[in-house]
Design a protein around this nucleic acid. Structure first.
Length: 596
DNA sequence: AACTGCACTTAGCAATAATGAG
DNA sequence: CTCATTATTGCTAAGTGCAGTT
């Protein structure tokens, strides 16, 4: 740890050519005039120098054959590469997805005439990959150390860019590896080849005065060199193998000054919304009864975005997965129930299901009913408005207000409100306070519909814990019996928890001490363990589908969490991981009285 | 006014690292 | 210390929204 820091400092010195790096504490420097002027001109930097990108290794032939139609056949290099990519996805949910299979099949057919996926047996390639994996896993300590060293050096070289006298972390300096495209949900292009990117496709961005980074791929050179100081990317390219308009960038890391400042601005904007939310709510409520359908739709859509934290829902192309947000909701996505209840069921971003049944304001229910009238299930619910109309309406009420600000505002507001509910938390242990915080965080995640799929392991883990619990229960009873004996003998008993499981850890050891006071102790300890295990299981069950991380990284104003930790004497590390603490370094000095 | 290109934020999952129980 | 479990990070897909163009 310490070693690495020294290395970076040394490196910084070399990179800066003897100049001292300017203080990175931008949030403490008060010269808004200069930066504001630059911002207005859209200038993000004055000097930008970097070391280029790292190209993923080329495909290396392994000469492992494919069993096709029951016979082992030799593949050409191109065929082998594609088959290897396929073999990489065996065991993942993609393997059985219809589109993924179909697209891969037709992709293979361009290299293998008449290729049929169900005639192909990839076992040998799969075994080869598994072997490689084990080889990677079982490297000697020496080798691991050497590789770590090389990794660190690469990181030092590519991972920092020189911006206006400061070194800033670069995010994704390694280009993406070619592979089969893994689109989420029913993505029509899933299973097609995401091609390798060559230097000629890249546009490099740096200062006029900065040295052009070397292109490390022999025989190749950068496609284009630009000096755009109105943007913050270092490289851009279009990954057209999947979509014509698929722009990708090499950008600065979340810990860079650019991202940090934008982040702070985002939360400040959300706080401005907090100050005028009452007026805005009044405004859109008024619109709900307008004579104009368009006005009513604007009001209703804004209500849903505010109340349910829906995304705005831009239009999507035909060659993308069919997912929706508020403005792209279709009649088929809602059901109007009794008593002003509306049931929403649609696929949102990342094809995550939004399935929620809520009681809404009576006028909203009536409006939704009106918007569905005479329409087919596949017709747009908000047929008379566009995303631009909605954002225009919002902008009129607050400078810079857009639909996504509502998500940030409602998330942060919810967190603050939930945390305030706890009062002083007197007499709570640190763990209890952290649990309380996690629960507040959870309410935000529920609001924003941040989900995760239940892991494959979950049911098994649950079963294991349940068996263990049962085992503990009988153990306690047995201990009590044992206690009643006049002269109890000391002995141990091993219990196999899981039938068919060969893992050492699945063995529970029952210890029966010889002394009465020790037996009593063991009973007590086991009971405590039982309770702890039971609580853990309950928490696991409750959180099995909820992802807490997304709101922490993107929606919760970090100053809320910092203030909470200060007030309640909770170390910030219990709430923010190292990367989050770096990302939110500007918020670390927040006063304990601070409120969102 | 609608369209489209572009740049940036937000998202879940797999791989990896850290932690903790035995 | 070792192994299994849990937490964190890396990766890259998929959103939003601005600005320039037709």
């Amino acid at each position: 740890m310490g070693d690495k820091k020294i290395k970076i400092d040394e490196y910084k010195e070399i990179r800066l050519g003897g100049f001292q790096a300017r203080s990175h504490n931008w949030w403490e420097e008060a010269n808004p005039e200069e930066s504001e002027e630059e911002e207005q001109q859209g200038q993000e930097w004055r000097y930008l120098e970097h070391h280029g990108v790292l190209f993923p290794p080329f495909y290396k032939r392994h000469n492992v054959g494919l069993i096709y139609n029951g016979k082992l056949i030799t593949l050409t290099e191109e065929q082998e590469e594609l088959c290897t990519y396929w073999a990489q996805s065996i065991g993942s949910p993609y393997e059985n997805k219809e589109i993924y299979r179909k697209n891969f099949e037709s992709l293979m057919q361009t290299k293998f005439e008449g290729f049929q996926l169900d005639k192909a047996d990839f076992t040998k390639i799969r075994e080869h990959l598994e072997q490689q994996r084990l080889l990677r896993l079982n490297k000697s300590d020496e080798q691991k150390k050497q590789e770590k060293l090389e990794r660190d050096q690469r990181e030092l070289f590519y991972g920092y860019a020189l911006v206006d006298g400061c070194l800033e972390r670069v995010g994704n300096y390694t280009l993406e590896q070619p592979t089969l495209f893994k689109g989420r949900g029913e993505h029509p292009k899933a299973g097609l080849l995401k091609a390798r990117i060559f230097p000629e496709e890249l546009t490099v961005n740096l200062s006029t005065q900065a040295p052009v980074p070397q292109c490390k791929l022999p025989g190749h050179s950068w496609g284009k060199i630009v000096h755009r100081n109105d943007v913050t990317w270092l490289f851009s390219y279009v990954d057209s193998s999947i979509r014509k308009d698929n722009h990708k960038y090499v950008q600065f890391a979340a810990t860079s000054r650019f991202k940090q400042m934008n982040d702070k601005r985002k939360y400040e904007k959300a706080r401005r919304l907090k100050n005028c939310i009452d007026q805005i709510r009044e405004n859109y409520t008024k619109k709900l009864q307008s004579d104009s359908i368009k006005e009513r739709q604007l009001g209703t859509a804004t209500y849903l975005i505010d109340k349910l934290a829906l995304r705005v829902g831009n239009e999507k192309d035909e060659d993308e997965a069919d997912t929706v947000g508020c403005c792209s909701l279709r009649v088929e996505h809602i059901k109007l129930k009794e008593d002003d209840v509306v049931a929403f069921d649609f696929l949102g971003k990342d094809s995550m299901r939004y399935n929620n049944e809520v009681k809404l304001a009576h006028q909203i229910w009536k409006n939704l009913k009106l918007f569905t009238k005479g329409k087919q299930p596949e017709d747009n619910l908000f047929s008379d408005i566009s995303v631009d109309d909605l954002n225009d309406f919002l902008k009129k009420q607050m400078d810079g207000l857009t639909a996504k600000v509502f998500r940030t505002y409602n998330a942060s507001f919810t967190l603050q409100q939930q945390l305030d509910l706890g009062g002083t938390l007197d007499g709570h242990s640190v763990q209890q306070k952290v649990d309380f915080y996690d629960n507040a965080n959870k309410q935000v995640a529920i609001l924003c519909n941040h989900q995760k799929t239940i892991s494959k392991q979950f049911e098994l883990t649950k079963k294991k814990i349940n068996t263990k619990l049962e085992c503990m229960k009988t153990y306690i009873q047995e201990l009590e019996q044992h206690y009643k004996k006049k002269n109890p003998n000391e002995y141990e008993e091993e219990v196999q928890l899981e039938e068919g499981s060969q893992k050492k850890n699945s063995i529970f050891i029952k210890k029966f001490p010889g002394q009465h006071d020790k037996i009593k102790q063991t009973i007590q300890k086991t009971q405590e363990k039982y309770q702890k295990e039971l609580k853990g299981l309950e928490k696991k069950e409750e959180n099995k589908e909820i992802a807490l991380g997304t709101s922490k990284t993107n929606y919760n104003d970090p100053r809320i969490s910092v203030a909470f930790c200060k007030v309640h004497d909770v170390p910030i590390e219990r709430v923010f991981s190292k990367t989050l603490r770096n990302k939110f370094i500007w918020a670390m000095a927040t006063d304990s009285n601070w409120k969102f």
